[in-house]
Design a protein around this nucleic acid. Sequence first.
DNA 1: TGTACATCAGTGAACGCGCGTTCACTGATGTAC
DNA 2: TGTACATCAGTGAACGCGCGTTCACTGATGTAC
Lengths: 205, 205
Amino acid sequence: MARDTEKRRAELRDRLLDIAEREVRNNGAASLRARALASEAGCAVGAIYNVFDDMTGLVLAVNGRTFGRLGETVTNAVAKAGPDPTEQLITIARSYLAFASTDPNLWRALFVADMSTDSAVPAWYLQELQRLFAMIAAPLTKLHPDAPPDEIDLMTRTLFSSVHGIILLGLERRISGVPEAKIEEMIGFLLRRVTGADKGRVSGD
Amino acid sequence: MARDTEKRRAELRDRLLDIAEREVRNNGAASLRARALASEAGCAVGAIYNVFDDMTGLVLAVNGRTFGRLGETVTNAVAKAGPDPTEQLITIARSYLAFASTDPNLWRALFVADMSTDSAVPAWYLQELQRLFAMIAAPLTKLHPDAPPDEIDLMTRTLFSSVHGIILLGLERRISGVPEAKIEEMIGFLLRRVTGADKGRVSGD
DNA sequence: TGTACATCAGTGAACGCGCGTTCACTGATGTAC
DNA sequence: TGTACATCAGTGAACGCGCGTTCACTGATGTAC
C-alpha cells in the first residue's frame, strides 16, 4: 500500500475528527456516539477503529486540537499585552476565560476525569499544561525575581486553579458562582490583589 | 395504614440511603446501581421506587446529607476560630478542604452536573450554598464595613470559587494542580493576599 | 500494457454487556363491623 | 375476640433502550512479473 491509501486514511481521520469536534462543541463529549459519527462521516462503524484505537482515543485527539487552539489563543493574547506583569497575568486569565466561554463543552472535555482506565494522562497533555503554566510563571518571576523556582511553580498552579475555579463555577448555571457578566471583573480583582498591584479597594479598577 | 408501616418505610429509606452513601463515598456517584443497592438492602429493585422517585432522587438525598455534614463541619470550625476576619476565612477554607479531602467522592457528587434533565437544582441545594456563602460573607463584611452588600456577595463567590478550584485540581491526580500537601499553604497564601493581611512575601506565614 | 496475486481499508451484522424503570401480581398489615 | 375486606408495601421478571467493540467477509487498490 502507499500514497493514495495513506492519504485516504488521513482524510478519514480528519473527517472523523472534524465531526467529533463539532459534536463535542455542540453537545459535550458525553454525547459522542460511534454509530452517529460513522453515519455522519459516511463510513462504517468499524472504520473508526482502523483510524483510532477506540472512542477514548478519538476524544483525546479532539482534546489535542482544543489544547492547541487554547495555547495559541493565550500566546497571541500575551504577545499583545504590555510589559506590566500584573496586566500580563490578567491578559492570560482573560484569554483563558474567553476561550472557555466561547466553547465551554470543548473546554470542559479537557478536564473530564473519565479518560478512565489506567495509566492516566498522555504525556503531551501534561506538556500542554506546562506550556500554559510557563506563560503564567514568566510574569510571576518578574514580580518576584528572588523567589525560588518551586515557589513560583506553586504560585502558578495556585493562580491557575483559582481562575479555573472561578470560571468553572461561573459558567455552570446550576451552581451560583460568580455571575458570568462579572467573572472578568472578579478575576482582575483577584489577580491584582494577589500580585499586590491593588492594595486598598474592594472591587477592580 | 399507619404507624408500623410508616416506620418500616422510613427504615427502608434510611437503609437505602446508608448503603447508597457508602457506595458514593467509596466509588463515586457514577457507580451507584439500582440492582446492587436493592440486593445489599435485602429488598427488591422495585421497592426503591416506593421510597424514592428514582435513582437521581436517591443521589440528591445523599447529597442532602453530605451538605448537612459539610455545613456542620464549617460552622463548628468557624465557631472555634478567633476574631480576626482573615483567619476566619482561612479557617473556613481549611475546613472545606478537610471535608473535601476526607470524602472526595461525596464532595464531588455535590457538584456533578448530571442531575441532568430539566429544572435544575432543588431549592434546598441553593439554600445550603447560601449558608456557606453567609459564613464567608461575615468576615468579609468585617474587613470591608463600607462595601455594599452585592460587592461583598461578589467577593464571597470569587473567594469560594477560587478555593474550590484549588482544591478541585489539587485533589485530581490526573491534572497537575497544586500538590495535595501544599494546598493548605496555598489557600492561606491566597486568602491573606486577597484580604491584604500579607502584603509583601511570596509564600504564606 | 496485461495478468495473477496479495494486501488491507472498509463493511455492518452480531456480540456482549449493563442499566433504570415498570407493572401485574402477592401477601402481610391494618380497618370496619 | 373474630371475621370479611381493603390497602398498599413489596416483589422480581420483563421491557426497552443504548452502547462500544469485534470479526468474518468483500472488493478496491497496489505490487510483481
